Computed example of a mutant assay.
Amino acid sequence: MASSLRLTLVIAALCAGNAAIADTVERTVPADARGEVEIINTSGDVQVRGWDRAEVQIHADLDDETEKLDVQSSQGRTTINVIRRGRSSSGSSDLIVEVPRDSTLLVKTVSADQTISDVRGVQRLQAVSGSISTRVWGEEITVRTISGDVIVAGHGTTSRTAVNTVSGDVNLSDVSGELNVETVTGDMQIRMPTLSRGRIQTTNGNLNLHAMLSADARLEAEAINGDLSFMFKQPVNVEFDVETFNGEIDNCFGPKSVRTREFAPGNALRFKEGNGSARVRVKTLNGGVEICK
């Protein structure tokens, strides 16, 4: 009886191990050096690396809930799709994908993290229940997450960066140019060598922005529940317009805020620093504002 039980347990353990990773697949297909690569994986991590070959190489660890790995490449477009059986959300199929360095990259994942490195083309990344970490080199990037953090590191080159998160923090460093960030329940840490155009909105989140404003920069920031902190590198030539309904305004440049209502909450601060060629507009409902240099 005991021997039979032990044998049963060993067989069960082996089956469980096989279920975790049912198959390892290696695929290589030709690709345009500046083509488009789309990756779809509904359960499993995705790592993408840029290289100098005109081909896409995939290493896939597929679980037993995966029906197949579908790879297509034609007319400058490569698609990689992990097709699962039914609607099962159990298990995980992980991908490591090498793509031409200058590819346009589109990645969609569910219950998976994305890690992108050395891809220098346009990036459009989406994740549900997963984080996204990437580096950019000057091309446009769009990132959307639900229940996932976003980390974007740049090289100081000018680009357009758009980030939208629901229940996720945002960390941007060394990205320059135009910025559009929207968060619901997520804090933002942003460092920009140069900011030319910016729009930042948060429902429940704090902002910490360090930036050099270009001569004609335009920045708008709004928060419903959250503190907004701005640190501007000198020289600062800005016309400021700041309003809070229920929050204090701390200004290192000198001028003090004034009450907008005698018997109700509300503060406002309007002043010009330097020649005032740039414009900064800030509004908060429940949250303070700090402006410093």
Rank of each mutant, 00 (worst) to 15 (best):
S129M: 03
G254C: 04
G247A: 11
E38K: 09
V82W: 08
S129I: 03
T115L: 04
I190D: 01
R281Q: 13
L209D: 06
T78P: 01
L62P: 02
G198W: 03
G168Y: 01
L195K: 03
E220R: 07
N208I: 11
I96C: 00
I96N: 04
A33F: 04
G266W: 07
R259C: 00
R27H: 04
T104N: 09
V128C: 00
A22E: 12
Q75E: 15
C252T: 06
A20Y: 08
R199Q: 15
D216M: 02
A217Y: 02
G287F: 10
L106D: 09
V110A: 11
S214H: 02
A16H: 01
R135N: 13
R191G: 03
D149Q: 03
S93D: 02
V143Q: 03
S117K: 10
T142S: 12
E65A: 11
N204G: 01
G17A: 14
G247D: 10
P100W: 00
V56C: 06
E222D: 14
I291A: 08
R281I: 11
I291R: 04
H210L: 10
S277E: 13
D241S: 13
L269K: 00
N237Y: 06
N180G: 08
V82M: 05
S257V: 06
K68V: 09
R124M: 04
T203N: 12
D250S: 14
E222Q: 13
L209Y: 03
T185R: 13
S214F: 03
S3L: 13
L106H: 14
I11Y: 08
N246S: 14
T134E: 03
P265Q: 11
G148T: 05
T161G: 03
R218I: 13
I291E: 01
K108G: 03
Q72K: 15
S117E: 15
T165D: 03
P265Y: 13
S111I: 01
A20W: 07
Q47H: 10
E26W: 07
S229M: 11
D216Q: 13
N208L: 15
T109Y: 11
S131R: 03
V238N: 08
M188Q: 13
